[in-house]
Amino acid sequence: MNRIQKAFSPVQAETELKEKTVEFLHIQAARKSGAAKRFRVYAAACAALVVLVAGIIFYGVYTTPVSYISIDVNPSVELELNLFDRVIAWNGYNDDGEAIAQGLDLYNMPYTQAVDTLLQDSQMEQCLAKEGAQLVFTVSSDKEEELTAGIESCQGYILHHGTCTSAGTEEVHEAHELGLSMGRYRVYLELQQAGVEITPEECQNLTMRELMDLLEETPSSSNGESAASSSDSTASSSTMSGSSHHGEENGHGNGTGNGDGYQWGKHSSSGHE
């Protein structure tokens, strides 16, 4: 043992110092583990809250209708689509429509698939098979062109020679207030403009064909600008028909009934004049 070792050997940590330190460590350890536990609880609570809020927001976004597609023959069915163009609700707007709507489950379906499913429904097919039946789609959406293109590519649309028009959001609400689908509401407005006395209820249960005929029979309806587009500034009405069967001017229309049937959009009426 050298002299430094000998001199320093008596220098030792006093028992009291060691005991104090051990006690201090005990308190610190308890505090740390308590803090860690609290932190874990808070972190878990925060994470749960974030997930919950995100879930609520997503659910809100998912279940908010942003687009409407109204499908009118005699049965009137309207599809409500969310931001992701999936069906979140489908409502019948007359007795036939309700009967069909009740028998289908379209929830969460992409709208093109929903359209085809709807048009393949046996009741719907029966209605479409009737002579002169009119299949009218009315789209109300910010991405109207995209949806219209989607609808026009549907098998049912091509098969049954559908037509597609568009409507503004306000029109949708007005139509719903009267218990009508968008498509019917457009014709209802035109009939009113043309001076035909018809109630929304009557409108509900006539076929589109009958409504079109009624419109045609009214003298003022054959006059260029449609009532709907002139009376309602929110309506951006334009008939975009993918089928050839409605235009007499292209030479192979199957009867005047079909050809002039829906001269209630700006486009079609000006095209025929």
Partner: peptide
């Protein structure tokens, strides 16, 4: 805490010096 207490016992004198 046990590990820390053991360290106080073993190294306490050295730290004190």
């Amino acid at each position: 805490e046990e590990e820390a207490t053991r360290a106080v016992e073993i190294y306490g004198d050295m730290v004190r010096r």
